[in-house]
Design a protein around this nucleic acid. Structure first.
Lengths: 145, 145
DNA sequence: ACTTGAACCTCTAGTAACTAGAGGAATTAC
DNA sequence: GTAATTCCTCTAGTTACTAGAGGTTCAAGT
């Protein structure tokens, strides 16, 4: 009854999740992953549950959630009612952030394009790129906060 | 002949550039701003040149340039020839990065929208949001690196 | 001239989210 | 059995700041 579950070393887990080994240990330290069992020689051994949890974390991180929010979501396991509202809220908030970021980046794109064109190929005496970088006044879209 | 230039305290500079006071000192420490003159009582006094330089830095930061690149650009003052190519190169590279970031964020937006809708308003027994966060398989656009 | 109060000084430490390296022990493959 | 690989802990570094402690200086009002 002792060898029934498949167990992974930290390296296996890393390969399967594409999360780096030191990062896994970091998540453990931060409480995102529970402390796993250890071999007699003190090496970590993980099971399927840990694998799923780590994939969940990774997915959240890919989506741009800060670890604090991931912790929040992880704490909702088996939750119901208002707790689920929390999850929904986190998703909504993240989406709003994301849209904001996208639109700000798009206005920067416009401006960078302008700057880059300002000195295309041949440059005159003084390159316009440097001027353009220093000059807010030419920006059409505002990127001030 | 000593009071001809307008001089700013660090707070004035901060207000004019919307760069926070500790950040200005940080830039000085990192060599992005030259060490300014001091009053008899050891307080920093800045002139127009410093103001312009700080605005330049701020603008670059707004555009998403890392400080290392800003240093690179600052070192090109009065440069010519291949040095100007460097400036142009930095702008191009930044633009490419930016476009990449935008497209990745857009695919995340698609997915987050899906996730958020998964549990819209009323939730059943188990909220789909949590499942969706953990589930890569439903993603259409890939956001793997 | 004197007294507040705001703004300034330096220095240390903390933030997010890892990454890198040292020095050494355990595991695995042949 | 031994050699290569992987693992362990611990410390420190990264980026770009931000916050706080404890103390000094400046500017304005009286």
């Amino acid at each position: 009854m002792l060898g029934t579950k498949k167990m992974f070393s930290i390296g296996d887990l890393s390969r399967r999740t594409r999360v780096k080994v030191p990062t896994i240990r970091f998540y453990e330290e931060k409480g995102l992953l529970p402390r796993p069992d250890r071999t007699a020689g003190n090496q970590r051994r993980y099971d399927e549950t840990a694998l799923k949890r780590l994939l969940f974390i990774r997915h959240c991180r890919d989506l741009g959630l800060p670890l604090a929010d991931v912790v929040g979501l992880l704490s909702l396991e088996g939750a119901s009612g208002t707790d689920l509202d929390r999850a929904h809220e986190i998703a909504e908030k993240q989406l709003a952030d994301l849209r904001d970021r996208i639109s700000r980046l798009q206005s920067l794109e416009t401006e960078l394009t302008r700057i880059s064109k300002a000195c295309d190929g041949k440059h005159d005496h003084v390159c316009a790129v440097l001027h353009a970088f220093g000059d807010h006044s030419e920006c059409k879209g505002s990127h001030s906060n």
